[in-house]
Design a protein around this nucleic acid. Structure first.
Lengths: 192, 192, 192, 192
DNA sequence: TTTTAACCGAGACGGTACGTCCGGTCTTGTC
DNA sequence: GACAAGACCGGACGTACCGTCTCGGTTAAAA
């Protein structure tokens, strides 16, 4: 996906095997200890087949983790902004705190830190949609008069996710409901 | 610093040479292309001398960059919270956006992402003081009645820095004064 | 040769380059100062390529020196045993005394002293044929009645070469024609 | 012994500990795997103390093995040369074949092969006396008329020991009484 | 008897080479 | 011609020892 050249004649079976192997190995050993050779071996694939279609370890990993998940589900809209934001933030926090997903997300995060090209893909296909959904919900709240007319919704969305990302990324504290709620309270209050 | 054993008998000259070499090489080539061998070579030091006192490339880099910088300067206190926060956030944003410092900070960030032990050190010696300063300024504002009595200052400080970190880390947009101001506006308003 | 696995798919060019480099480096620096890294560097080859096909420095050296030399030339047979033996012993002595060959032979000797597996190869491909040739000549002399019927030709051959080897190996004295002749005189006389 | 400078003020205790450690380690691991550091550690001695008094690993080993053994015992003289030689050769062969002594002797042999200075010491203090004893016995046999007047006794002695050394050094065959006897028979016959 | 300097243990130091791992490229034979 | 397999060159890894160099502590001769 990430680096596909004009898809001339490509073994879908190999592609899937590679992505699956990458996913498994990241889960088992983490991003740092992951090697192209190990992916090839586990996938039963020649190394060249990986190099033919991806540019780096990070590209494979990103591809394997983003996969075909859309990640663009619209936020719930119960009419009460704080309630809806709270739900999403709690969910996001819980997801990032969950041990099963940790390894993958950390891997993706490191990959993205290291390679601007991957960051581009990551933003477009993963973060962008999530931020857009939040922005949309905020816009609908503004229309409902729950948010000040001059509020910068773009920034508000970023601040919400940024708070969680910051705490998660640097291990500053627990990612529980209380934290999610506190962030939502602050931002929602600031938006009024 | 990071991994010093009971200070047996250690060459201060070598230690400095290693940290300097690490700092330079990170600036020149970035964290990913940095090698222990290169550090040793530039520092005119045996590899063993590095392995004797540090546990990993990341530990050396962190040590070389945190150095002896306190990073705990108190925030200005003009009496107006928004003004003071704006100044600090603008400064922080500008610092992280500046190309000269980019390489170092990215390096430190990757190192920390990869090794929980380093993250611990980073939090204690670098982030902690910065967050504490912000918290202190918010506390003084609360006493001045500019902040609601029940506001969670801890979370507020994190949200402020988190917003900048998020945008910087993932390259979501420009780190200019406008962004810093927007974040401050939202948070300051939320705190009232 | 020494350690070849089922000849999978091996670069003959690299093999030759390695053996040549080993030969040169032994001649230049001697066995003790020889390193695998130096061989790889001079041969323009990855170290792994050496480790893939040989088990040790000694194995490479032995291979490089034994090469494809047969070393099994039959002894001359002029009809007079003493004359023929004298010629071979003089030649052998001169060869081992010659400075150009010294380094190689000493290297091979040390390699063989250190590793029984190499000794095995050395005996079979190098010493064995030489001893066999001598034994054959003695046998023909016995048929001609110049040697006692009950003489142990095997031992006689060993004694001949052993005398030279002993003096050479431990530097007990000059390896000149006089010495070769003295040894031949003693043994030939003992065989009658 | 080997490299002693004017024995200013030297800890006899350390010296003994080093030699003992060297002897033990050679027996346990062989000469190739022996390291100065290991000797120092086992002897409870600083490395410098070894380097102060010896020039190389080989020098320590040689010193530790030659020790103060004279090795110059005169050969028995029963009146019958062949009998006496047979006894000495059998004994020598058995000694070199014995597994307990193997490691030491091989170590000494390798050390000597590698360093001409050690070879010098080895010849003077170890081989020389042994060869001289044999030569003396041959001389007495010549006086008794058992050996031709023009025989080269020097060479004869070398040939005797050389045969055993050759077979032992290169592993050409068993070092049993039969071999010792065969060598003696050939040489004794040649001397008449 | 006190000084003093060499010796000693310990072990850090700048280095070199080790043998291994992996990156990214190239080659071979199969499908 | 894409593919699995894996050899190849290169280069960094982390370790083991080298031989040199402090650093106190201890001795034994000189003062």
């Amino acid at each position: 996906m990430t680096d596909k050249k004009p898809p001339v004649r490509r073994s879908e079976k190999s592609r899937q095997a590679i992505l699956t192997a990458a996913r498994e190995l990241v889960a088992e050993y983490g991003f740092a200890k992951l090697t192209i050779e190990a992916i090839a071996a586990r996938a039963g694939v020649g190394k060249q087949t990986i190099y033919r279609w991806w540019t780096s370890k990070g590209a494979v990993v990103l591809d394997s983790l983003i996969g075909d998940t859309p990640n663009g589900a619209a936020l719930p809209d119960t009419g009460d902004l704080a309630t809806d934001l709270r739900e999403v933030m709690r969910l996001t926090a819980a997801e990032m705190a969950s041990p099963e997903i940790q390894a993958s997300t950390r891997a993706m995060n490191v990959a993205v830190q290291t390679d601007p090209a991957l960051a581009e893909v990551y933003r477009e296909r993963y973060l962008g949609p999530a931020l857009a959904s939040a922005r949309d919900r905020l816009a609908s709240a503004r229309e409902a008069g729950q948010v000040a007319a001059d509020a910068d919704l773009e920034v508000a969305a970023e601040v919400l996710f940024g708070a969680i990302y910051y705490r998660w990324s640097l291990g500053l504290g627990p990612l529980d409901d209380a934290y999610a709620d506190a962030v939502v309270r602050l931002v929602a209050s600031g938006l009024r």
